[in-house]
Amino acid sequence: MATREVLIFGRFERFWHWGQMVLIVLLMFTGFGLHGFHNLLDFRVAVTLHTFSAFALLILWLFSVFWLFTTETWRHFLPTGRGLWRVLRFYSYGIFKGERHPYRKAYWRKHNPLQALAYLMLKIVLFPLIWITGIAYLLYFLWRGFPFSSEILEWIALIHTGAAFAILVFALIHIYMLTTGHSFWEHVRPMVTGFDKVELTPEEEAYLEKDQPAMIR
């Protein structure tokens, strides 16, 4: 077993991540402003930014879904119970004892079970909640004449706001997790350079060196 620097986040994936980050921060900031939590932006500007950021994020998501399925990378997000408990135990106990993280990153499986589950829930629960309600809200002009439309809109707004709170909680934990290693930068770096330290079997190492030389260094 050798630990090598392997490309685990390709260029598109990095672009997706950081693009998504910027847009979510923007949406969060403008959205909570529209909600009335702060008054740092003119409402008109906030509406415009919120709408355009939402469109941009939807387009980005369209590309990411296409990418996930055409590159088979969706498999990284498949949930698994194997090792989940040990990761949970690590974060709630072992980390305080200075234990080593129980998960070994593989280049074909870059997320630990807790991460995979968290990201999957984000993708299939929280994000759809917010984009489905958001699109319904944007298209209100089409269905405003329907019976009970204003009551339905209120529910849509509630779900939209609730999902925003949940995503904020996710983001806070997500950022905190970056501090749980040697350094903040160590965790952020792979999403910048694409390369992370991964333990490879001799076969994997040989394969990558021979067939995917750009993925290993």
């Binding site: 305080f96 004892k97 200075g98 234990e99 998960y103 806070l172 997500h174 950022i175 905190y176 997790m177």
Partner: peptide, 29 residues
């Protein structure tokens, strides 16, 4: 929920600071 998250994070970080001597963590964000 946001406040509870922040408190949990703070608590977690504090406990880490006062208990964690070794630095062998290799977790993921």
């Amino acid at each position: 929920a946001v406040l509870a998250t922040l408190i949990t994070i703070l608590g977690h970080a504090l406990i880490r600071r006062f208990t964690n001597r070794g630095d062998s963590h290799d977790g993921h964000a």
